[in-house]
Nucleic acid binder design. Sequence first.
RNA 1: GGCCUGGUAGUUCAGUUGGUUAGAACGCUGCCCUGUCACGGCAGAGGUCGAGAGUUCGAGUCUCUUCCAGGUCGCCA
Length: 591
Amino acid sequence: MADSMKGLKRTHYCGDVTETGQEVVVGGFVDRIRNKGGVIFIVLRDRTGIVQLLFNDKSDPEIFEKASSCRGEYVLMAKGKVVERESKNYKIKTGLVEIFVDDLRILAKAQTPPFEIVSDSNVNEELRLKYRYLDLRREPLQKNIIMRHEIAKVTREYFYENGFLEIETPMMMKSTPEGARDYLVPSRVHQGKFYALPQSPQIYKQLLMISGYDRYIQLARCFRDEDLRADRQPEFTQIDLEMSFVDAEDIQECVEGFVQRVFKEVIGVEIPTPLPRLTFADAMNRYGTDKPDTRFGFEIQDISGIVKNTDFVVFRNALNEGGSVRAINVKDGAGTYTRKEIDKLIEHAKGIGAKGLAYIRWADEPNCSFKKFLKDGELETICNAVGAEKGDLILICADKNKTVLSTLGAIRLICGKRLNVIPEDKYNFLWITEMPFFEYDEESGTWVAAHHPFTMPMEECLEYLDTDPANVRAKAWDLVLNGTELSSGSMRITDFELQQKMFTALGMTDEEIKAKFGFLVDAYRYGAPPHGGMGIGLDRLAMIMCKADSLRDVTAFPKVQNASELMSECPSTVDEENLSVLGIKVDIQED
RNA sequence: GGCCUGGUAGUUCAGUUGGUUAGAACGCUGCCCUGUCACGGCAGAGGUCGAGAGUUCGAGUCUCUUCCAGGUCGCCA
């Protein structure tokens, strides 16, 4: 039987015990035991830190005996006097004192954990996720979870102070088949019908503007049934906001104030505003991505004009087919990469869809993979054009524009990481503006909405709506931080006629519109103030502020790549009785 | 669904060309130690080498299949 804590009331957290002379009661987990034979030191840990408990066999043999029976991770409560240590430990906050214990309770014994509960653990993540509740005892994870709380707290304070109302929107809503796959919830009352979990509260927050709530904020859970990435979980939290009687710049200004505040208050970093801006087109051309990491160089350069007369058939073909030849000049010693390292980069490029990469490796002399196709002086011309010097590696991709840009964008990032040239303490925010309104869908051969269908096009692009979809840009923008898409926002269409026109441009029939968004379209007939908003990824923000590599490190109970949870082993099967109440029969298709 | 990386004591790893009884460190158990602090010393327990099949006189090591985890592309309006 474990001891009871009767008669004891905690007075201090472990990390706060620093003053000598006082009587304290602390509780926590046994972090470490150092038994010297006649004296025992037990290090006790809670979420604030650690403190040393002292037991002496001369002073109270019964307590000493109990202390010597303790093992790692036992849950203890101890009462005693805070005394100065004989030999001090200046490395920890409570290292100058210790608690001379006169009442010890073992509140719970503990099995030996499957891995050590220490700060610098490099245990296999699979095992840590299976025993997530133990992993969460570790200091780095506790720090992240607590910082995430701080971020949420400052978020609420900022938006509340700026007149935003926090309003909850439904978790069970109508499924809208566009975009990401929905998580579905079967209805018992309406057999054969389903609710969907929200991918975002988009529609509801727009309705709230129509209802006149003017400024809305919610820390909203969102769900998307798509494959995971390090920065993508199937359920995540969005700082969701919407504002009326504003234009894009007003919303951006408000969000700039927010990031400034949260970085200052939570990690003490000053973010200068206004934040830099880049159009989508420029971002693609310079970085090959709509979420560029601007903390380092190696920008993409178009050398189509320079190489158009070479005899290298790969370049010629790409240009003849309407593509381009572009290069990145990788500095910081990449010119000394071995053939093997370059081959690995080329393999990676092939994985993305490129046919390959040409390169000029300049260790001592420029060494060019396509030298035999070059006439005198052409190599120098290329080197000069991309600003190459000794020690550089020039990687060249020739293909369709889309392939060239996405390939070089990805390779740029790999090189930056491998060469360790990305400064860790820098926070480069960037607005990506003038996002394209339509995207070309290769599969169906049609133009589809790049955003939800209520996104406002830029006024000056309206004339191209029917004639040149590629040229239509949206009043939509992203906020990027260090190469991670943090947030996405847009102005919404409030004009009924324009909305009809957009639906038509997207090839939607009246019946489709009515079935999918009938209630929303109707709502806009009753008067809607101009409005727009954003959704800011709280998890991603926390990930970057905690300097974590994965959302799993800032999420208490995350899912793994196949969207299951290793601890509880969900999702799981449901017995037939429960299914039959819902009118559901499982019919698994074997491949 | 494609590509890449990984899986050997509880944990982190080593394991040569395929060759005797698969090792180390940490952790764990017991004993010793009155000032440790990543305490120290002595002794000990602990392995279906992810699983299955194949090649071989012989497989942790080679081949195939499969499972699990991670990264990435597709996907994510």
